[in-house]
């Protein structure tokens, strides 16, 4: 027991405490100045804004994927089911170079998109694409077990009460999936906000345009501007905290409604 706690303290608590201590060395004014500088604000905006947009895309596409995987039988279904985990297992640097090469102007998907006048690699769109990539498993894997567990009788009950298929999905199935969908959204968002490896290759990293907050931390560190790096890190850390906390609360709330049998 003592060993556990001391290990946890050593490996997790001390480093995090160090981060907060460091940020306390800054006066509130300094702290505010760092955060409100144009480049920091833009980096945070890019990270949070695009991460949210990507999480929303993942919510929609993830739901469609879950529906296809759980409800339908089609050739290759099991393979696609396994493939969903690839973004989780693939090292982020590998994902980064692969996505960049794929969406570069001469890449397999980049070329046809360029012909349509859409430039992905080295633009904010590229960041968006990379964030979608890494977020897929989070939505799918949180929603999938919940959809699998929905009792067929529930849908039959709705049907026998006269609900159309569409009404059954909107009024009965979606609300049952609600907590899982929100959890998946939050997890995908949290992951995308902090993502570094898979984003920096495709991002272009143009300050104020396509520079993500984690990259700005790295840049500030390499400039030995530790205060700047720390301030940005603290903001991101607090947001992560809030998200985990919200997810945990959401799960507890969902569980309190579930045991209906």
């Amino acid at each position: 027991m003592g060993l556990t706690l001391s290990w946890l303290t050593l490996i997790i608590l001390i480093p995090l405490a160090g981060l907060f201590l460091k940020s306390l060395e800054l006066s509130p004014e300094q702290f505010w100045n760092i955060l409100s500088s144009r480049r920091t604000l833009n980096a945070l905006r890019v990270s949070f804004g695009l991460a949210f947009a990507a999480a929303c895309v993942n919510l929609v596409m993830g739901s469609i994927i879950v529906w296809a995987l759980v409800r339908y039988r089609f050739p290759g279904r099991r393979i696609f089911d396994a493939i969903v985990d690839v973004p989780f297992a693939l090292p982020t640097a590998v994902a980064g170079v692969a996505l960049t090469a794929l969406f570069a102007e001469k890449g397999w998907l980049g070329a046809p998109l360029a012909a349509l006048g859409i430039k992905v690699a080295f633009t904010p769109v590229g960041i968006f694409v990379a964030m979608i990539f890494i977020g897929i498993p989070f939505v799918v894997r949180t929603v999938q077990p919940v959809l699998q567990d929905i009792d067929p009788e529930i849908e039959e009950a709705a049907g026998s009460l006269g609900a159309s298929r569409w009404q059954t999905i909107i009024r009965v199935i979606l609300p049952s999936l609600g907590p899982a969908l929100l959890t998946g959204l939050a997890l995908a968002f949290a992951r995308a906000v902090g993502e570094y490896g898979s984003v920096i290759f495709i991002a272009g990293n143009l300050p104020n345009v396509s520079e993500i907050a984690p990259l700005l931390i790295v840049i500030r560190l390499s400039e030995f501007r530790y205060a700047d790096a720390t301030a940005i890190a603290v903001v991101m850390l607090v947001v992560s905290f809030v998200i985990i906390f919200a997810v945990n609360r959401l799960q507890r709330w969902a569980q309190s409604r579930i045991p209906v049998r």
């Binding site: 009792d151 009788e153 529930i154 039959e156 009950a157 709705a158 026998s160 009460l161 006269g162 609900a163 159309s164 009404q167 009024r171 009965v172 609300p175 049952s176 609600g178 409604r257 579930i258 209906v260 049998r261």
Partner: peptide, 26 residues
């Protein structure tokens, strides 16, 4: 046809009132 399921199949995210009202609302 009114069907009462063995395990009731109540909609767990709806109140009792909304469960009963469901067939009328759809």
């Amino acid at each position: 046809v009114g069907f009462v399921f063995q395990h009731y199949a109540l909609f767990r995210h709806m109140t009792v009132f909304e469960n009963v009202a469901f067939g009328l609302r759809v």
